[in-house]
Every structure is written in structure tokens, then in C-alpha cells.
């Protein structure tokens, strides 16, 4: 347990040792800030129109501001998480430090899990800081706070799933760029699966769509907590972490 904590802290610190963490945090907050501002401005316009038009009276902050904002954040995370995860295992293998790390009393599983949690924590920090937008909403208006929390929980789980795929990509190659490309391609694929019913037809469509990570986010971002969605994310993470551990073992045996 002690060793696990040491690896976790080292990984988390290493984001802040280089400019990585700061650039990502600033960039992320700038972009989400812009989306938030644009969303609020648009919502203000809608509200004005709604005063004249009774049909539009039903608009609310969750549907018209928070849900689209979370959707945008998900897209940003598709671009960002490969950068968070590409280094994790690929660099250890390229520089050979994995050999020394695994001579300490730590298991492969412990290493993979500690690294996964560190990257997930980094994503959670980004997500947490973007909560400032929600605080502004709570201050200037009366949005439904529990629904926003559920939306953020969904985002957190989504990021965890993204990170687990990234860890896997980082396990299969020694090259960080290749690792980033693999996770980027994988995440994009899982995103566009959400549109597949339009391509493969009525029968196969829903099956493929149920694998889409971003579709799973939709319920959350509307403030809906569905155990099926939670289970999907947890299983997704569990699967990719398990495979990562196996890949790491296999690569090591052939080293």
C-alpha cells in the first residue's frame, strides 16, 4: 500500500514538474471558459425571446447550458487524455526504468493502477477547476445543483474510461507518440459509434451505440443517474486496466 502511494504521488507530481499540467489546465479553462461564456450569452438571448414567446417558456439552465457544455468538455477530453496518458508506461519501458521499478516489491497491477489513478486525478483536477463555471451559475441563477453534480459525476467516469484506454495504449508501445495516436484513434472511434444507427441500420445500430462512451454520458449530463451507465464505465475501465496489466506482463517476459 505504501509503495502504491509512492508511485501514485510520483506520477501525479511529474505532471507538475514539467509544464504539462499548467499548460493543460490553463488551456482547458480558457476553452471551457469560452464555451461557458458563449453558452451564457446565448441563453440570455433565448430568455429574452422566451419572454415574448410562451412556447419557449420551458427552457432551463440544465438543458440549454450545462448539458451542451459537458458535451463540449467531453470532446476536449478526447483531445487531452491521450496527452495525459501517453507517457505513463511507454516511457518507463523505453528508458528501462520499468526494470528497476519492478525490482521493488510492487506488482504489475499495482503499477498500472497507481499510474491510472494519477492520470485520472489529473483529469479530475481539470474537471474540478471547471466547476467554477457552475459556481457562477449558482451565484447568478437557480440551477438544479444535484443535476449538475450528476453531470459532473458522468464526466468524471467518462474521463476515467478515457484514461484507462490511454493506459492500455501506453502499455502496448514504447513510443509515446504512437501511444497518443492509438488512444486518440480509439477515443474518436468510440465517440463516432454513437452515430452508427444512421450508418448500419436499425438493428445493429443500437448495439453499437451502446458501446459509445459519449452516448453513455448523455443521461448523466441531463442529470440522470442510470446504474447501467455507471456499470458500463466501471466495466470499461476494469477491462482496459486488466488488459494493460496483461500486456505489460507479456512485453516484459519477452524483454
Amino acid at each position: 500500500m505504501k509503495s502504491f502511494g509512492a508511485i501514485y504521488m510520483k506520477e501525479l507530481r511529474s505532471y507538475f514538474h514539467s509544464a504539462t499540467a499548467y499548460v493543460l489546465l490553463v488551456g482547458f479553462l480558457l476553452i471551457t471558459g469560452y464555451f461557458f461564456y458563449a453558452g451564457v450569452a446565448q441563453y440570455a438571448m433565448f430568455s429574452l425571446q422566451a419572454m415574448q414567446n410562451p412556447v419557449m417558456m420551458k427552457i432551463n439552465l440544465m438543458d440549454y447550458l450545462v448539458t451542451p457544455l459537458l458535451g463540449n468538455m467531453a470532446v476536449i477530453f478526447i483531445l487531452v487524455t491521450p496527452l495525459l496518458t501517453m507517457r505513463l508506461l511507454a516511457e518507463e519501458r523505453r528508458t528501462g526504468t520499468i526494470e528497476l521499478l519492478l525490482s521493488y516489491p510492487v506488482s504489475d497491477g499495482g503499477v498500472v493502477l497507481a499510474k491510472f489513478l494519477a492520470a485520472w486525478t489529473m483529469a479530475a483536477i481539470m474537471l474540478g477547476l471547471s466547476w467554477c463555471h457552475m459556481l457562477i451559475l449558482l451565484w447568478i441563477s437557480e440551477p438544479h445543483a444535484p443535476a449538475m453534480l450528476v453531470g459532473y459525476l458522468g464526466m468524471l467516469l467518462l474521463c476515467g474510461a478515457f484514461v484507462s484506454l490511454g493506459v492500455f495504449a501506453s502499455a502496448v508501445t514504447e513510443n509515446q507518440i504512437v501511444a497518443a495516436l492509438i488512444s486518440f484513434a480509439g477515443l474518436l472511434l468510440l465517440w463516432v459509434l454513437g452515430w452508427s444507427s444512421a450508418v448500419v441500420g436499425e438493428e445493429a445500430g443500437p448495439i453499437l451505440e451502446s458501446f459509445s462512451l459519449t452516448n453513455r454520458l448523455q443521461d448523466f449530463s441531463r442529470g440522470l443517474l442510470d446504474t447501467a451507465d455507471v456499470a458500463y464505465f466501471v466495466l470499461f475501465m476494469g477491462f482496459f486496466l486488466f488488459v494493460s496489466i496483461r500486456v505489460l506482463e507479456a512485453k516484459r517476459w519477452k524483454a
Binding site: K2, S3, G5, A6, K10, L101, P105, V106
Partner: peptide, 9 residues
Amino acid sequence: FVAGAKGLE
């Protein structure tokens, strides 16, 4: 870090 990874108090 190594001391931690080796599980030392």
C-alpha cells in the same frame, strides 16, 4: 520515492 516504493515507513 524509491524508499516509498520499497515500502519503508
